[in-house]
Write a protein that binds this DNA or RNA. Structure first.
Lengths: 333, 333
DNA sequence: GTACAAAGGCGAAACGTTTCGCTTAAAAAT
DNA sequence: ATTTTTAAGCGAAACGTTTCGCCTTTGTAC
């Protein structure tokens, strides 16, 4: 049997209330303070967080649910969130939705049952219905990445549309006109980035044939297949914009496999998210880089603020992405 | 206030004990069963896992502590472990040791405080002192990957030495004689793989100059720097064996950056762990592949067995790695 | 020296479950 | 018809904390 606060009480002759006060930093006579410390030492006492949680209704645990841990953005994101949170003595309960809305809803319920103090979520889709139980349980939620502006939840994200416009404009400035896009069309982020592409193109007076618009799912395989198809077109694009990390990887694979087409000689590429992989591939990719670390920091900050009871209005934190230079884009004449 | 078992009791006129029995699948009259179900529905009752844990002393949560979430092996491993565990209704509390033994020890204590039912650990070093608290708390631990054979804990791993020997022998069979190694020398896995290399070389009657043995840390940067140095040698090796994923990536980077040296033309490479990155790099790498998924399955299986109270003798599960063909190795004349 | 405030301590109740031992009613066996 | 077994239900205690309201002691100001 592990020692309890009661054993400490017996050992010191002090009451439970006093021991508890000591443990929580209350006022205790130096003399008694000493006594308790010795007893704790002697009996190897450790507070039982479960019992504590039962009465305080705080678990010092944050739930993190991501659309897929396999997507590198989430892996990286979890890494940073974990770092900050563990420093503050918080635990991290991680759930993977595997891009499945049903699973996502189940994850929320699961975490609610586990009584997490708050949640950080990168959602599967832009349907936030699944968050209702958290709302009614009054557990704060911060949405990240695929976060909806219109939602009633806090969120931290980049301005996907503008960011994508800037990216495409870079290609246009390099005199590209036949610009294709490979994006995911199932969730907010992908859709917004697509809109940015569309707007940039029309602003520049450039039209885009349907065959240049690959709108699919967020997966390396889709990036690979799409790029293969683009390369086969009679009227091949001179540049391709990939709107997330996995799509970028797939596209690079496809180009690498081709013996005829070379990057940037025959095709220019602009990718998304400068995660570890990007350092190893040739040529060095031109990339849109999201500030993953900072996004993690902001998300943690915000969820902790809510937990502390700070009831300011629902807030939307916008971060800036930036372009990282590479040599995957060719300046056309 | 969320509804409790007491509310259900009031609503149905049945005792707490009966409600509890119902919740845990005991014998309850169909009639009462119905009544309770209706009350649960009506009052939106959800069991409070915290209170339950306090009395059952089970949290249905497994702690996973990895030497670094940034290392891809761990990311992949966590993914699989999470999948299985969530299916069984278990939560996953994840801790990152950042390759720091102090942090690792703190993580164990943290998880013990959180009262996890068991732990799965990929340790920082081969010093298992830090696991003592888990031992005394009688919380089962399964070591993975960098697991010590000699330890008093369950473990699942590959036979690192033999696997490395096989790998090096492949190079030898391709008539390579000047074979270098880039490995980490701080932990069990790296040391064992190095030994396999050394043994294979001496069995073949090949000697290895010190300059061919890069023994450092488990980091992409180290792989990069080491390969750079190897390429600069007057008597350059014809083949290099990298003993983990991050080292492999770094080495590939270095070769890719070189304008003179080409793989496999001028240098052959044999890497470790076929994680996502490996699909994107050129040339397609010859790889030693660990069965990450199966290792996760076995680890979960074993920790759950222990939790169930199965006190068979300490067990060591050995898995087989295999070689994945690529075109990064040149057959010498 | 009186009044008052502040500090330190205490007992008991509460948090929301499970479980133990007991009782009763119904069913089965004799 | 009587006994035995089984099923179903109940009350109360337990899990290990925190917290509330109250009491005592000590110190301080006038």
């Amino acid at each position: 049997m592990p020692t309890t606060i009661r054993d400490i009480s017996k050992e010191t002759g002090l009451s439970l209330a006093t021991i508890s006060k000591y443990l929580n930093g209350g006022n205790v006579l130096p003399e008694n303070r000493e006594k308790i410390a010795m007893a704790v030492e002697k009996l190897h006492y450790e507070v039982n967080e479960i019992a504590r949680s039962l009465v305080t209704k705080k678990t010092r645990t944050i739930g993190v649910v991501v659309y897929s841990v396999e997507c590198a953005f989430n892996g990286s994101f979890i890494h940073y969130v974990n770092n900050i949170l563990s420093e503050k003595g918080y635990g991290l309960l991680i759930c993977d939705s595997s891009n499945d809305e049903k699973k996502e809803a189940a994850n929320i319920k699961f975490l609610l049952n586990k009584k997490v103090d708050g949640m950080i979520v990168t959602p599967v889709s832009n349907n936030t219905e699944f968050l209702k139980p958290a709302k009614t349980a009054e557990v704060p939620v911060v949405l990240v990445d695929r976060a909806l502006k219109s939602s009633e939840f806090d969120c931290v994200k980049i301005d996907n549309r503008t960011t994508a416009m800037d990216a495409v404009n870079l290609l246009i400035k390099n005199n590209h006109q036949k610009i294709a896009i490979i994006c995911s069309a199932k969730e907010y982020t992908g859709i917004e980035r697509y809109k940015g592409y569309r707007d940039a193109m029309s602003q520049a007076g450039l039209s885009v044939p349907a065959s240049y618009q690959k709108k699919g799912i967020h997966a390396m395989e889709y990036g690979y297949e799409s790029m293969k198809q683009l390369l086969k077109l009679k009227d091949r694009p001179t540049a391709v914009f990939m709107t997330n990390y996995e799509l970028t990887l797939g596209a690079v694979m496809a180009v690498n496999e081709s013996s005829e087409v070379n990057c940037p000689e025959h095709i220019s590429m602009l990718g998304f998210d400068d995660l570890i992989l990007a350092h190893v591939i040739q040529p060095r990719m031109y990339m849109v880089v999201q500030p993953v670390k900072e996004m993690g920091e902001k998300a943690v900050e915000q969820v902790l603020r809510r937990i502390a009871g700070n009831d300011d209005v629902s807030c939307e934190i916008n971060m800036n992405a930036h372009l990282k230079r590479g040599n995957s884009i060719k300046m056309l004449a």
